[in-house]
Structure formats: C-alpha cells, structure tokens
Design a protein around this nucleic acid. Sequence first.
DNA 1: TCCAAACCCTTGGATGTCCTAGTATATTGC
DNA 2: GCAATATACTAGGACATCCAAGGGTTTGGA
Lengths: 169, 169
Amino acid sequence: MGTPLPRDPIADAQRNWERHGWGDVAAPMAAITAIMRTQQILLARIETVLKPFGLTFARYELLALLSFARSGALPMNKASALLQVHPTSVTNAVDRLEKAALVARSPHPTDGRTTLIELTAEGRTLAKKATAALNAEVFGQSGFGDDDVDHLIRVLGTFRRDAGDFTEE
Amino acid sequence: MGTPLPRDPIADAQRNWERHGWGDVAAPMAAITAIMRTQQILLARIETVLKPFGLTFARYELLALLSFARSGALPMNKASALLQVHPTSVTNAVDRLEKAALVARSPHPTDGRTTLIELTAEGRTLAKKATAALNAEVFGQSGFGDDDVDHLIRVLGTFRRDAGDFTEE
DNA sequence: TCCAAACCCTTGGATGTCCTAGTATATTGC
DNA sequence: GCAATATACTAGGACATCCAAGGGTTTGGA
C-alpha cells in the first residue's frame, strides 16, 4: 500500500476523539482500531507466504485443522465450529480444496445429513510444507517480544471467552 | 455462529504445535491466531451497531475520516493512505456512499488526476450519530481493562511502526 | 406411528479486500 | 518543448465472509 505515513493515523484518531469530548472511549477505540489494522498486516504476511503453495489462509486453516484430527476426517459443521466461521465459508473452502485434490468429501456413515471432509495424501503433504513455511517466515518472526506474546494470549483469550467463543479455562 | 465450544480452539492449536515439535513458535502462533479471531469478533460487533444506519465499517471509517478533515474534503489517495487500504477499496466505498448521498466527488482545483471527496450535510449528520452509537455500544464496552488497553496500544503501535505503517513516535 | 421442529449442507446475493491493467493527467529530464 | 516516467483513479476478476432461503435427514413429542 505504499510509503510509511509521517504519523500514526490511529494515534491521530485517538487525539481527535479526545478533542471532541469522547476522551472516555478514545483509548479503547484506539486499541480496537489497532487490532483491526494489525490483523490486516498479519493476514497480508500470511497470504504472501501461502501463495506459492496455492493456498489462502482460510484454506490453510482447514488443512491444518484436518491434519490434527485424530480420525483424519471431520464433519463440516465441526470444522465450522472449530474454525469459528460461517458454515458457508467452509463449504466454499472445501469446494476449492476439493477441486485442488487436497481434501475429499465423503458421506457420514450413520447421519445422512452430515458430510465428512478428509485430507488426501497430497493435502497432508502440502499442509506440512505450508506449516513449516509459516512457522519460519511468520510465526518465528512475529516481531512481538515473548512477554508481549504472553500478554496478548492472556488478554485476548479472556476477551474471546467473554465473547462466547468457548467456556472453560 | 453458535454455541460456545467446550474448550479454547486456539489453546488446542498451541498444544498441537508443541506436540509436533514446533514449541519455539507455538506461542506467537497462538497470539497471532487470537488477533485474527478477536478482529473477527470486533468487526461483527461494529457491523451490528452500524447496520441500522445503513453503514458498514469500511464506509463508516471513510465518513469518520472526512468528518475530521480540516478542509472538509480529502483526495482519494489521501484517504487511501490514512485508512491504510488499497485505492480500489476507497473507490468502492465512495461509490456506495455517493449513491447514498453521504459524500460527493469533486475535481481537484489544480490537479486533474485527483478527485476530492467531501461529506454532504446528511453524511456529516450520519457520521455523528454512528460515532455516538459506536462509542456507546462498542468502544465503551470493549471488555478490555484500562491497563490492557494501554498495553495493546503500545504493543500494537510498535508492531505497526515496525511493519512500515508510519515512522515517528 | 407420524408430523413438526431441529439440524446439515448448499446455492445465490451483497460486501469488502486485493491485484492487474488501462486511461488520463503531471512531472521530470534531455 | 517533448518524450519518458510517475501518479491518480477506475474497471474487471479472484477470494473470503456473512445472511437468507431451500431441500434433504433425523429426532422427538403427541
């Protein structure tokens, strides 16, 4: 997107909020906006690393999830729940992964409503390679200090729990 | 998307990473994944609040930016830089806002390449109302503690600066 | 037993984001 | 002064996300 700005646009927004008398919510506004922007940056990095593998983040997440499934297969609704995305998003991702022969659909043995998705051999291999690349080029160079990582995991974990993502812990 | 999961899927992923011998990057992976998911939750909240106004977050951000512009108008490329999105995304947002009579395009007085965007009276009014709603229903109830907000602003600010978003500060 | 309610997946539509390319206007350098 | 380069916006296409709605399957209560 281009050249660095001379000043932090989010800090500017925070100052604008304060100037307009919304000082009580200026800081949370800045924090939330920063999260939105950080996600955008991280997503761009991830997509850049995955592109050579012909994967997007959404498809990679599904491959990775399947690669960790004990049985090697998951019902679509289970995948939707674990990835915390809309069922139609999973349908979309599976359509494309299936076309690329990385996963396969199969009927559930006892429940006629359910469709199972399973990694193909190619899918499993590609998942391994893509994970190695992400580990080396993104997660291993996040730019966050160890203490900050711990803090983020804790604070955002609490947030996600309070938002209803999960119960325990 | 539904019922809370019994366990945190991101904590599970972190355990899977450790189990596979990627313990050195498991924590950053979890932190990054948590940022992605938190963004999704926050975006959903924001869109819910904006929906009654007929706005999306992308369009709201543009309205808000214009409402703070001293001159009351901004070149599209300036808006693109400040919002940190691709120029075509701004074109898209302006198209829809213009159709809704919330902003207007006008030619730049001296540079024939440039298009200025300006709030209409309706646009200015709607921006005010939408901001009040977001302040009350999202930013004012972020769920983050004051200390966590400060920490997020600082950590993510450093991250964004290192990522090339801006220079100073 | 049987029908209504619940559940699962897919299709179609609306939005947003990015990339690539194309057109028009400015600026720069020879 | 003019050609080459740079900049600004837009058009078209690929993807992802969500919502609404539809068709098939299961479950549960009358």
